[in-house]
């Protein structure tokens, strides 16, 4: 059976769900961050697949911008994590419950 767009759909979906499971399962802030990156990449894959399907270049440009945003986000996010580590000497997200009512 030739590879069809449906295959890419399933693959992307699978990677996305694995990313979600990782976000929910881990307690380390850095690992959670990495799982978010995984989810972003799953979406990128799907977008590129659609771009190939519909011969539309705009999708690939969108992927480009997603990568831009992801990079900026990682920079700032890791800075925040580092600052958190300086404060509480740990990156366990369960420690961050100051917003508790």
């Amino acid at each position: 059976m030739p590879v069809s767009s449906t295959h890419y759909l399933f693959l992307s979906l699978l990677l996305f769900s694995i990313g979600i499971m990782g976000t929910l399962t881990r307690r380390n802030a850095v690992i959670i961050f990495m799982c978010i990156e995984l989810m972003l990449n799953a979406v990128n894959l799907l977008l590129v697949a659609f771009s190939r399907m519909y011969a539309d270049v705009n999708a690939q440009l969108f992927v480009f911008f997603i990568m831009v945003v992801a990079a900026a986000e990682v920079a700032v996010g890791l800075a925040i994590i580092v600052m958190m580590y300086r404060k509480v000497q740990s990156v366990d997200i369960n420690i961050l419950n100051r917003l508790k009512h």
Binding site: P2, S5, S51, A55, V57, Q60
Partner: peptide, 13 residues
Amino acid sequence: KNQSMEMPTTPIG
């Protein structure tokens, strides 16, 4: 709707 991915190479990428 699904469509085969094995199509002629396009210059899009």
